[in-house]
Write a protein that binds this DNA or RNA. Structure first.
Length: 282
DNA sequence: CATTTCACCTGGTGGC
DNA sequence: TGCCACCAGGTGAAAT
């Protein structure tokens, strides 16, 4: 499941490979689900536009686009006038392939590019979303929550102050922090030595600062390793990540804790499978 | 308003 | 061997 490190890895890969190229032709599957903007309008809007840059915000991939009419006149670095926003959901992939590469099952979008490659969106469970924004008429995409890689100690602590829900549920709330999902919530709570069910309001300032530092460290480490491939995650080239090998608790139910050998436990918190060490996380 | 539950999806798994 | 119930979880809408 793509979370911040996986989405960051994909966005970087796509950026390197498609920056400066124009979208030549757009094909969408007939499935209704993945489109936040209706497919017909989305396809018409995307065609002929140059891709100026690709970056990540929260779990969203944002492609900054130039204007269609004078696409060849736009230079990389000029102001974007539109955006194509991709959310991968649970099983979404965004791949840069050759034009003649075999089309994977559950391919929902194919954007052929001026450089002779293709940008493909593949998503078996169709939880992903594709959206187009015309920046002349609407605001640019902005994740609702704070960015975990840059948020400071005070702002981080303020997110959780006065809340009664569990810290695990709060970490998963995208309106508070953008980009944290089940894997990195569990891993950062382990690193910080905090029980997932602990109420936000009962966390001390020291614990919150430990959590912020742990989250930052875990996310940066995961980005360096190209993300976690736990189900079928791959980067823009179809290459798997390596951070799953470093997981301390996620999907390690019953296995010995890497620090104290106590078997890792799995419980349900806020309806999500949650993994923790009963000894290291007090 | 804050918080919880559920529906949306398909592939993989385990029981019989 | 085959079939089927069930689970995985990001998100947003509905319920509490």
């Amino acid at each position: 499941m793509p979370e911040l490190p996986e989405v960051e890895t994909i966005a970087r890969g796509v950026h390197e490979r498609v920056r400066g190229q124009s979208i030549v032709q757009v094909w969408f599957s007939s499935h209704r689900q993945p489109f936040k903007t209706p497919a017909v309008r989305q396809a018409r809007e995307l065609e002929d536009r140059p891709i100026l840059a690709v970056h990540r915000t929260g779990k969203h991939i944002v492609c900054e686009l130039g204007s269609a009419s004078g696409g060849h006149l736009d230079k990389v670095g000029s102001m974007p006038v539109a955006q194509w926003i991709v959310h991968l959901g649970m099983t979404g992939r965004l791949l840069v392939t050759t034009l003649d590469a075999p089309v994977a099952l559950h391919t929902h979008a194919r954007l052929s590019l001026s450089g002779g490659k293709e940008l493909r969106f593949v998503d078996p469970r169709r939880f992903g979303r594709l959206e187009f924004r015309d920046l002349d008429r609407e605001a640019g995409f902005c994740a609702p929550g704070a960015e975990p890689l840059t948020i400071g100690p005070d702002a981080f602590a303020a997110l959780f102050r006065g809340r009664r829900l569990s810290i695990k549920a709060a970490l998963l709330n995208q309106a508070l922090l953008a980009g944290v999902g089940n894997i990195y919530a569990d891993e950062s709570l382990f690193q910080a030595g905090i029980r997932p069910r602990k109420s936000c309001g009962r966390l001390t300032r020291t614990e919150l600062e430990r959590l912020r530092a742990a989250l930052l460290q875990v996310l940066e480490h995961a980005i360096r390793l190209g993300g976690s491939s736990v189900s079928d995650y791959v980067d823009a080239d179809g290459v798997r990540g390596f951070f799953q090998l470093e997981h301390c608790v996620y999907q390690r139910t019953g296995q010995p804790c890497r620090l104290c050998k106590t078997p890792i436990r799995r419980i349900l918190v806020a309806g999500r499978g949650t993994h923790y060490c009963p000894r290291c996380q007090s």
